[in-house]
Design a protein around this nucleic acid. Structure first.
Lengths: 132, 132
DNA sequence: TTATTTACGACTATTTTAGTCGTATATAAA
DNA sequence: TTTATATACGACTAAAATAGTCGTAAATAA
């Protein structure tokens, strides 16, 4: 409960790794996977996802790899999480109103308050807070 | 990701329900399950858990049920979550140090910071913040 | 004695998360 | 032009976590 997924974890590790490179230097999926003992195929998919989202840029072919293209200071963490995993909310009803129990539910207000607190916390953070 | 479980959700709903009763009045598992469309057997187990933890008290037999025994103002939410679900941490490594990747891991510090923020947030809340 | 309720462990089902595989495409270098 | 190395991506499988069910026992009020 209240855990981030490995997908997000591996994405953050990779971004920090890329950030520490000299400007313009590339890292391949294999390089990162080896460095942090992450399954290579899985990591590849995650990097592809980051690439589709334009957070990093891919270069194909031998000696190819990835580099950061977006300033981490400009990426809001709530947004980042939702980019990777879809809508974030501590309960499904905080996302989606199709819940049979909704009418009866007696904890909606406090749950939404908690939800907002968590979002606010991540809204105040950028990727740079994690990858620097 | 970053979700609470139904176990916790149902526990909170039940506690709020019990709180709204007149002092000394009991609610059975069935009553609560019916009111919020929760599977009765599942809820029963959760109430038994709360009872073992002395947050509520059980009365057996016909016309039996549960009532609150602990002042919700005195129950810290971090503690409550951990009572119900075990240690809380956004990544396993924030709990347990047996991770092969730990040495290499480059995001430990920021992850721990986030973790502390979430814990602090729940440390400042009591059950009463949710059940009132 | 019966009906109703809690107690509790074992079991099953479902959903989510994690990880693998096959195949395609790009491209640098031999 | 061939080969080796990379990314791209969807389909698939495996594992783990979560959710829910069932059977049986014990207490107790009526």
């Amino acid at each position: 409960m209240l855990k981030i997924t490995r997908k997000v974890e591996y994405a953050l590790i990779s971004l920090r790794h890329l950030q520490q490179k000299e400007k313009g230097q590339l890292s391949s999926a294999k390089e990162i996977a080896d460095a942090y003992l992450i399954p290579q195929e899985l990591l590849a998919k995650i990097l592809q996802h980051l690439s589709r989202e334009k957070i990093i840029e891919a270069v194909k072919g031998p000696a190819g790899g990835y580099k950061i293209t977006t300033d981490p200071n400009t990426i809001n963490m709530t947004k980042f999480f939702e980019l990777m995993e879809g809508p974030m909310g501590i309960m499904d009803c905080s996302l989606d109103t199709s819940c049979d129990q909704l009418n009866a539910c007696n904890i909606r207000t406090p749950i939404n308050r908690i939800n907002d607190s968590i979002r606010t916390m991540f809204d105040k953070m950028t990727l740079a807070d994690i990858t620097y």
